[in-house]
Amino acid sequence: MRSEPLTLGFDTSAAHCAAALLSGDRVIAARTEEMTRGQAERLFPLLEEVLTEGGATWADLSRIGVGTGPGNFTGIRIAVSAARGLGLSLKVPVLGVTSFEALALDLPGGTIATVAAPRDRIYVQTGGDDPRLIALETLEDEGLPRGATWVGAPADDCADRLAGQATAPRHPLAEAIARIAARKTPGPAPAPLYLRPADAAPARDTPPVIVP
């Protein structure tokens, strides 16, 4: 009989499939595989390998943590859809954890977490503010503090531009997600954190005016 609750955390928000299994606050199995595609096919076999390595089965899990991004739209949907399906079948709490929360875990307060976005932009979250999408080019004009510590990608570039310093995350991504999920208060079902609207233009054709 296990004394400590098991939490499985996983993430496919970028070019990887990552998972970690916690027993209480101890990592008992973890795996990260780099891949630019194929996460949808690889995720469940990888999760099952992590469970097996930890001597656990799906039914032993008490909680699931899933990375909600921001990141690759398809990637965050893969993990979130999988987690919601697992929540339905396992009837355990499923907690969404953002990349910002995961990157900043166990780092000093005031550390700014950042995630690379397409076209030389970054997703960034400072303190309790809403996360934003900003261009690296105009980073100096965004009211961000100078001299701060940055974590994530591209932390070095951001720190250079604002006279701060870069640091590495304290935990691998999936492990951080599992750690946060293990102690977070369960809320609504996890949803992807897109931070960018869908790329869609309103219809161009102007229909005729209908007259009697």
Partner: peptide
């Protein structure tokens, strides 16, 4: 594909968890 993938991943989660 985005929708198909969401459905497939949700189904995998249901199937895996329920055996």
């Amino acid at each position: 594909i985005g929708g198909v993938m969401s459905g497939v991943m949700c189904a995998k989660g249901i199937a895996a968890g329920a055996g």
